[in-house]
Amino acid sequence: MFEARLAQGSIFAKVIEGLRELVTEATWECSGNGITLQAMDSSHVALVSLVLRSDGFETYRCDRNMSLGISLTSMSKVLKMMGKDDTLTIRVNDDSDAIVLSMESQNQEEFAEYELRLMDLDSEHLGIPDTDYSCVVKMPSTKFSRICRDMAILGDSVTICSTKDGVKFGAKGDVGQGSIRLNQSTNVDKEEDAVSIELREAVALTFAVRYLNMFCKAAPLSNQVNLSMSEDTPLMCEFKVGDMGHIRFYLAPKIED
């Protein structure tokens, strides 16, 4: 049997909203350590890796490792029925072909239960090596979302150039071109508003902005986003999920034809 309970069910809903545009269905790997998921988008240029550690749940029980094929599209629809302060319990009974989502209101006066049929999915798994990136930009996730949305107006690609002083996002297309430059924060009251850059080597990489915009669907999970970059290496775009885990998106850079 598998059972995991989250007092703040909305966190789980935000995780699903963060994933579902990039991947519509995925295999959840459940073990005693927690829940992990790795999935690629259909064009194989982007990858998402999710980790939710068992100690981040109020209660967590996993008697044996399970691989659960789940439609994220359907799960998202079910989670929309959840109240914003509801507690969420996810359960898979032994020998069952369904996942049960139970939602309980904070005053314990309302209790809802939904079942979703599990799917048989072919899953591919890519080995992602631990990488020492040349540059890690940390910035407010809302600012990153806004920049990606704005850049998409100008073109299909965004070039991210990072030096020790700042980071510049630029795009050009048929209508024109533009760029936004953020300087490293020197003095901020709130850490979540800061832009900080750890740099070993300056980088300039170009990415499809459409994918960056899909990654930004996970921005509500975290005040800050980490962008880890090295030349000729996929970007790693990371949003923390509280202190229980993270969503990491990987995107292959574009190269000149």
Binding site: V45, T206, D257
Partner: peptide, 14 residues
Amino acid sequence: NQFQLELQTYYTHT
């Protein structure tokens, strides 16, 4: 023109 490479170019299947 810019080509979008696939991730398999960088990471191996396990």
